[in-house]
Design a protein around this nucleic acid. Structure first.
Lengths: 131, 131
DNA sequence: CCGCATCCTATGAGATACTG
DNA sequence: CAGTATCTCATAGGATGCGG
């Protein structure tokens, strides 16, 4: 079941189906579109961080959302979680190779966004002024 | 107010602040991460379509979400809306130049997603099997 | 044909309090 | 320190019915 999309498209040689909720593009969009994911990856891009270091470096994030997002990222293989059985406990989060390659994707989006933000904001202002 | 981010970063020469909700990257992520936006842009990439043509070509979309998404895209200057004062009414939607350039961004995401989906799904399966 | 208005529900996400 | 658990509220999104 987990592999249904993969089976469909890669093994059975069908074309990717963007309308499928398991479509890779949708999978990635849903992940990076998350409110906090990009911020967390941004912080980890400079190196390993502990839980509370991350919490402090991402302004406004709650413990719940940090935990939740980190779990999802670990599940996707984008970060690794290393636990030290010390007192007090210590947990480190590091980007994997996969996670590091994701930085470039976000950069591409940022480049497009920054070159076009002026047009978009102007279009929005023009649209809104009609009402 | 609408231009606050733009003023801050481009006119006042400050660096982009990804933590600001008006940050261009966040603006674009929020737009393309929308459940339907990518699908609609995908359909329009092959040419102009009418409202009900779009509705039929995007399986599962409701009238509400189609209207809502199209409005947002028009507001952002990504599509243009042309109304024909006929009976029955006819409304056509077409990608703007800006909208067409967005296709390439989505393609970049798709490329990354498709090259890495296998690893991600395997990581997820491995993670889930632990519990 | 192309919507808008309304109601309803599920999920997302913040605040708060508690534990190994 | 690094979480979990629960409560609550806001929003997104689906279903349905009406209107120009």
């Amino acid at each position: 079941m987990l592999y249904s999309y993969y089976l469909e498209t890669y093994i059975m040689k069908k074309i990717p189906n963007i309308y499928n909720a398991n479509c890779p593009t949708r999978l990635i969009l849903d992940r990076i579109a998350d409110k906090w994911t990009v911020l967390i990856i941004g912080q980890l891009s400079s190196g390993t961080l502990r839980f509370n270091e991350l919490k402090r470096s991402v302004p406004g994030i709650t413990q719940k959302m940090l935990t939740q997002t980190l779990k999802g990222l670990e599940r996707d293989g984008i970060i690794v979680r290393k636990i030290y059985a010390t007192v007090p406990p210590k947990v480190e989060y590091t980007l994997t190779k996969l996670g590091k390659s994701l930085i470039r994707v976000v950069e591409a989006i940022r480049t497009w966004a920054e070159t076009n933000v002026k047009d978009i904001l102007q279009s929005q202002a023009k649209y809104d002024s009609k009402f």
